[in-house]
Design a protein around this nucleic acid. Structure first.
Length: 790
RNA sequence: GCGGAUAUGGUGGAAUUGGUAGACACGCUGGUUUUAGGUACCAGUGCCGAAAGGUGUGGGGGUUCGACUCCCUCUAUCCGCACCA
């Protein structure tokens, strides 16, 4: 073999990547004549090294982009960096470097690695979120939202490390202790900025129905997260002038209330704590551990009984009032305890020997009320004028005592972070009155740089907090589509590209990031900055990349570095295996042996083309039929197109292409073939190259070059011929009592009765039919016959 | 704890609408070629069985002529839980 005949991925890949760059193949601008397609993969946090999760994510995005380009669309695929974040601050402390330098060095390294994978990005649009050119617009947006009343100052709980005197992220709290100091973490209430995402709860929920291109599971998760509940508010009097408001989804159980529970931050709790040392101590002892929902759910329910009685709004009975750690500080921060019909209330009542009063009876229920709560609905008992009513009827009758209300579980989005490596919050806060604030947009520009300017005789302090990094990732999709805009946040280009047609990213972002981006899109639309209400038309959530069944991590020592594999096998093999090993939405088990398999397949294609190039055309019998191969080719194109476009099932697409290659008869690969065979073989090879092109673009570009006059980039996705999808004979499966007993080949033109009688004559089938009574024959078109016998 | 998902050979996975379970690969076994082989090619490969056949999709139950697929129930694993990104 001569030198050019050996597959050398690294040489080819560099050459082809240079071609793309030189010819600006992926730089795009709005083109009204073409259908646009905006494909976005979640941009990475520049941690330093590209890992397999990135490779998988970006390969999926690139495959979709290249496929859509081959379908003739004007495809935008950008890339950038989510550059603010905690790891940079940690690295800065550990290595004595600036977070900025650390981040930029990482970006440089990761960009080289991304480029080596041959992704079809329009690199002109690249930005990093730590660029002032980016976050100045975020600050501007914050001021606009503030003006619109969508930003509020709220009291929020944070994790406080009493030794290091810092706020900790949930991740930095390990078993209730600070990760560096080891001190018991306390919960602390501080004042912070929040976006009023609650105002959009209803629309964020109802618009989920418009998102046909989103996975059901993600929509369900978002729906449950927003958590709409229909219920009623009741007011319990306390003393002469005070009262406690509660919300319940089960107003029908109102007469079963035997206690009221308050959160730590309820005004009454705070008021009592002032003069009650025991309560103060209790609050302190129960304020340990992280603020995360998971940890508060796992800690045991504790309570402190106040020397206070509340008045039941209907019975006017005196009700005990407790402070408890299982009451969330959101909403009213108070709940009505109905132990008989709520399991959490039940557990609390059992522990503190509070009365359990059953007011609902369900005859179909197997619940033993002495052991657990009866949570199902039923008929009202022990409830005076409500007795005998159904749960729903009682609710109607109660509306004169309570107020019907729709409640959401979704809470406002607190965005203040006490960190240095983040986008500064553009706000001045008065030194004397923290309620008095001035956004940068209202500030005389000369004062913006100052830490403590005096304005109208009052000293203001610049907010030292930075934004939650989720803020940057909530609107980056729009900035990519408007990269030239300098004097406005977005220019007109944004309306051409948006919405994102295909968004690709990890399932771990199913709730927070996607919900925040949806919120930002709606808010920006309300500011007339965008014309759309939903940012992502279609969503693909890829699964995790695992090694030996678990997530790759340094501590487990199972990290696979893509860089080394690319150097050894080439990026086409790595791309191919990451698409072949599993369907995109499932977790992927990485296997270096499997990667070699992909490498082997690419070698096989390579050799096939080399062989084809040496073919000599000779005169020969042209009456030979190649029906099978023609049908297989057309079936494959049909299946692969469907797998790419509608099923997003790239692993089976690759399998089908492999099958087609395996299907080529040996006599096509002999040195001398007739013209008919030559043309068919070329058609098969070219179709395979086109279908593989989105997945392994380098080798396809090169091999196409070797046997064609055009460039592969100038060709469209192959189409199939409907008239070649079926052979003249069909295989029918024959079952007896649902068990496979044989099969027959039948001419497509044969009638049902003929086929059945032919099936009966099958030797093996005969054996199972003899001495049996035939009860029924099931006949499924083009597929199967089932004889039901006794 | 709550919400969402997943479970099929030794391994990754396929079966698109309830209709041949195990496509396509990896691995393994045997063989051929080669100076060597971690190359290439050929054959075999769910389990039990000599075969006929039986059996088999996490466990248990159900619907159906027919169930990986639908229903009930249990178990295990993974993702998220609002300050990791």
């Amino acid at each position: 073999m001569s030198k050019t005949q050996i597959y050398k991925p690294n040489e080819i890949e560099e050459k082809v990547q240079n071609y793309w760059e030189k010819n600006r193949c992926f730089e795009v601008a709005p083109d009204p004549k073409k259908e646009k397609f905006y494909c976005l993969s979640m941009f990475p946090y520049p941690s330093g090294e590209l890992h397999m999760g990135h490779v998988r994510n970006y390969t999926i995005g690139d495959v979709i982009s290249r496929f859509q380009r081959m379908k003739g669309k004007n495809v935008l695929q950008p890339m950038g960096w989510d550059a603010f974040g905690l790891p940079a601050e940690n690295a800065a402390i550990e290595n004595n470097v600036s977070p900025k330098d650390w981040t930029e060095k990482n970006i440089k390294r990761m960009k080289t690695q991304l480029k080596s994978l041959g992704f079809s990005y329009d690199w002109r649009r690249e930005f990093k979120t730590c660029d002032q050119d980016y976050y100045k617009w975020e600050q501007w947006l914050f001021c606009e939202l503030f003006k619109k009343g969508l930003v509020v100052r709220e009291e929020t709980e944070v994790n406080w490390d009493p030794v290091d005197q810092t706020v900790l992220a949930n991740e930095q709290v390990i078993d209730g202790k600070g990760w560096r100091s080891g001190a018991n973490v306390e919960r602390k209430v501080i004042s912070q900025w929040s976006f009023k995402i609650e105002d959009y709860a209803s629309e964020l929920l109802s618009d989920l129905d418009l998102l046909d291109g989103w996975p059901e599971q993600v929509k369900t998760m978002q729906k449950n997260w927003i958590g709409k509940s229909d219920g009623m508010e009741f007011t319990f009097g306390v003393g002469e002038s005070s009262f406690i408001e509660v919300f319940t989804t089960r107003p029908d159980t109102i007469m079963g209330v035997t206690f009221i529970a308050l959160s730590f931050n309820h005004p009454i709790t705070r008021e009592y704590a002032k003069n009650d040392n025991a309560l103060q101590t209790w609050l302190k002892n129960n304020s340990k551990g992280s603020t995360s929902e998971i940890s508060s759910n796992l800690t045991e329910k504790n309570g402190y009984k106040l020397k206070l009685k509340a008045i039941h709004p209907i019975s006017k009975e005196q009700i005990e009032v407790w402070v408890s750690n299982y009451v969330l500080s959101y909403g009213f921060g108070a709940l009505m305890g109905v132990p008989a019909h709520d399991q959490r209330d039940y557990d609390f009542a059992k522990k503190y020997k509070i009365k359990i009063k059953q007011v609902i009876e369900n005859k179909n229920s197997t619940v033993d009320i002495t052991k657990e709560a009866e949570v199902s609905k039923g008929t009202i008992i022990n409830s005076e004028f409500l007795n005998g009513l159904k749960s729903e009827e009682a609710t109607e009758k109660l509306s004169k005592f309570g107020k019907k209300k729709i409640n959401y579980r979704l809470r406002n989005w607190g965005v203040s972070r006490q960190r240095s490596w983040g986008a500064p919050i553009p706000m001045m806060i008065s030194k004397n009155d923290p309620q008095k604030v001035i956004p940068f947009s209202e500030l005389n520009e000369s004062l913006i740089g100052e830490e403590e300017p005096e304005i109208d005789g009052e000293i203001f302090i610049k907010d030292k907090d930075t934004f939650d990094t989720f803020v940057e990732s909530s609107w980056y999709f729009a900035r990519f589509a408007s990269y030239k805009s300098e004097d406005k946040i977005f220019d007109d280009e944004v309306d051409y590209w948006l919405p994102v047609d295909q968004y690709v990213g990890g399932i771990e972002h199913a709730i927070l990031h996607l919900l925040y981006s949806r919120f930002f899109c709606k808010a920006m639309s309300d500011l007339d900055l965008l014309k759309i209400r939903e940012p992502f038309k279609k969503l693909l959530c890829q699964g995790m990349v695992l090694k030996d069944g678990s997530k790759m991590s340094k501590s487990k020592g199972n990290v696979i570095n893509p860089k080394e594999l690319i150097e050894e096998f080439g990026s086409d093999s790595v791309r191919m295996f990451s698409m072949f090993a599993a369907p995109p939405n499932q977790s992927l088990e990485w296997s270096n042996e499997g990667l070699k398999g992909s490498y082997k397949f690419l070698n096989k294609i390579w050799s096939l083309v080399q062989l084809f190039k040496q073919q000599e055309i000779v005169e020969g019998d042209s009456k030979e039929s190649h029906e099978d191969l023609v049908v297989k080719l057309n079936q494959t194109i049909k299946k692969v197109s469907n797998d790419f476009e509608t099923r997003e099932s790239f692993n089976t697409a690759i399998s089908s292409i492999m099958e087609l290659i395996n299907f080529v008869p040996e006599d096509f690969l002999k040195n001398k073939i007739n013209n008919e065979k030559y043309c068919l073989l070329k058609q098969v090879i070219n179709s395979c190259l086109l279908m593989l092109n989105p997945i392994t673009p380098h080798i396809c570009h090169e091999l196409w070059d070797q046997i064609n006059e055009t460039k592969i980039e100038d060709n469209l996705w192959p189409s199939f011929d409907k008239s070649f999808l079926e052979t003249s004979e069909l295989e029918f499966v024959i079952q007896v009592n649902g068990k496979l007993r044989g099969s027959i080949l039948v001419d497509v033109k044969k009638e049902k009765d003929e086929i059945i009688s032919a099936a009966k004559k099958n030797e093996n089938v005969k054996k199972f039919l003899s001495n049996k009574k035939l009860i029924k024959v099931i006949f499924i078109e083009k597929k199967l016959i089932n004889f039901v016998v006794k």
